[in-house]
Amino acid sequence: MNSIKIQIPSLNENIRIIESFIDNAKEKYNIDDDIYGNIMIAVTESVNNAIKHGNQNNKKKNVSLSLILEDNVICFTIEDEGEGFDYNNLPDPTSPENIDKPSGRGIFLMKHLSDEVAFENDGRVVKLSFYFN
C-alpha cells in the first residue's frame, strides 16, 4: 500500500499545490488520463470546499490531503478543521430554483466524477475513490 499526505493553510492560491500533488501522483502511479481529469476536478473542488466552507478561508486552519493506493483503487482523503456540515440535506443543484446559483455544485460534481464518495466526522472528512485497472 502506498500513501502520501500533505497539509496546506486555507488559502485559495494553495490550490496549485494540490494540483502539483495530483500531477506527481499521476506520474508516480501511472494514472490513466481518463481518470486523471476526474481526479483533478473532484479533488481540487473538495479542497476548495474545505478552504471556503469548512475553514471559512481562515489561513490559520489547515486542509490536509492524503492519497492511498491499494490494488486498483486510488483514494483521496480531504480533511478540514471546520464545524462540519449536514451532507445528507444538500440542495439539488439541478433543480430549477438552484440552477442559476453560482455555488452548490461541488459535491454534485464530486459524486459524478468519483466512483465512491464518503463523508466522515460530520462532513469534515471527504473520501473520494477512483477505480482503475
Rank of each mutant, 00 (worst) to 15 (best):
V43N: 00
R105N: 08
K5E: 15
S46L: 07
E79G: 02
S10P: 01
I18N: 01
L69K: 12
E19M: 11
N12S: 13
L113H: 04
A118P: 00
V125C: 09
E79K: 15
I78H: 09
I17E: 11
F132P: 00
E81H: 08
A42P: 01
K52E: 08
N88H: 14
L109V: 10
N38R: 15
F130A: 05
I8T: 01
D92S: 14
D92H: 11
R124L: 04
N12A: 13
Y36N: 10
N24D: 12
I35C: 02
P96H: 07
I51D: 02
A42V: 02
N62F: 14
V117C: 12
I18F: 06
E13N: 11
G106T: 04
I6R: 01
A50C: 09
G37Q: 07
I17C: 00
H53M: 03
E45R: 01
I51T: 03
K61A: 09
A50V: 08
N49I: 01
P102G: 01
R124T: 13
G123F: 05
I17F: 06
N121A: 02
N89E: 07
G104M: 05
N30R: 14
Q7I: 10
L113E: 04
T44R: 00
D115H: 13
L128S: 04
C75F: 00
V73T: 14
Q7L: 06
N2L: 05
D122R: 10
P96F: 14
S95A: 15
N55S: 08
D34F: 13
P96Q: 12
A42I: 02
L67M: 14
S66W: 00
G106R: 00
Y29Q: 12
V125L: 07
E13M: 07
